[in-house]
């Protein structure tokens, strides 16, 4: 098994109308790392995520997931390896019950019977929703739906979990519950957000995507302490939040271990 979960080299993407959203992104994530992808609205964060599982095709550059290039002939395996949790859980939960929804991905991988049941139960337990399998998604609270959405991709046992704005619209208790769950997962995580305290809470390393390129890559606490850097890229800490007052190591994370840097493009 390779030590690199994700390797992006010179990724360029232009939409059909010619608008160029990614202009040469380079990023490497080591196995087990949790990295925050920060950036203002419109920076291309979600566009980047959709390249990781081959929903969008790059205009130039390459993406490799655990060594496997994202190419049409590998799409099934790539989509097993990359689990994307979208921003609106109602987009992610489209089946009649939570159980059916969580079974959807593994069933597409060919799992049936008891193996499928075990996968569903394990994913539900991992997000603290055991006992909610037969609930109808729209009867769950928003926080529960967000966690169920995480379970739908955990059930595919992904190599890398990509979360698009996971803390948006959550009340403080639901934010903490979700952070606790993410903390306990043994999987590579790419956390896409502009919620900077949440990035600090969960990720030792952060990268800033702005203007279609990675403009900064380093320990989250260092990036968040650089007010000029944040201001240049339309990022702001909440009023009264001072990163220097906090322990720079997020809870649950191992001590600093020289995070992998994005390769120069």
């Amino acid at each position: 098994m390779t030590e690199t979960s994700l390797e992006i080299q010179g990724l360029v993407h232009a939409y059909p109308d010619g608008q160029q959203t990614l202009r040469g992104v380079c990023l490497t994530l080591r196995r087990g790392e949790r990295v925050a992808l920060l950036g203002p609205n419109g920076a291309g964060k979600t566009t980047l995520a959709l390249h990781l599982n081959g929903v969008l095709t790059p205009s130039a550059g390459t993406v490799r997931v655990a060594g496997l290039p994202v190419l049409p002939q590998h799409l099934a395996e790539i989509r097993r390896r990359v689990g994307i949790v979208f921003q609106d859980p109602d987009d992610q939960l489209f089946m009649p019950t939570v159980r059916d929804d969580i079974a959807f991905g593994p069933a597409n991988l060919g799992l049936r019977g008891q193996a499928l049941d075990r996968r569903v139960s394990a994913a539900l337990s991992a997000v603290g929703l055991a006992g909610h399998a037969d609930r109808v998604p729209h009867h769950l609270s928003f926080g529960q739906r967000r966690r169920a959405a995480v379970a739908t991709v955990l059930a595919m046992e992904p190599e890398i979990l990509v979360l698009d704005e996971p803390s948006s619209n959550l009340d403080p208790a639901s934010r903490r519950e979700l952070a606790d769950i993410l903390d306990g997962l043994d999987v590579t995580v790419l956390l896409i957000t502009h919620d900077l305290p949440y990035a600090l809470r969960l990720c030792q390393r952060s990268v800033i995507l702005s203007g279609g390129v990675i403009v900064a890559d380093g320990p989250t606490a260092d990036l968040l302490a650089d007010a000029d850097l944040l201001a240049r890229h339309r990022l702001e800490l909440p009023y009264g939040f001072d990163v220097r007052m906090l322990d720079s190591r997020p809870p649950g994370q191992p001590p600093a271990r020289d995070p992998a840097r994005s390769s120069p493009c």
Binding site: R79, D90, F94, D100, F104, G105, T152
Partner: peptide
């Protein structure tokens, strides 16, 4: 637009046109 987003979510979990069948 929601339909498009749901379709993206389905593709991301291995949807290829046929439902795997409910339990």
């Amino acid at each position: 637009e929601r339909g498009e987003r749901v379709h993206l979510a389905m593709l991301s979990r291995g949807y290829t046109g046929g439902m795997p069948g409910l339990l």
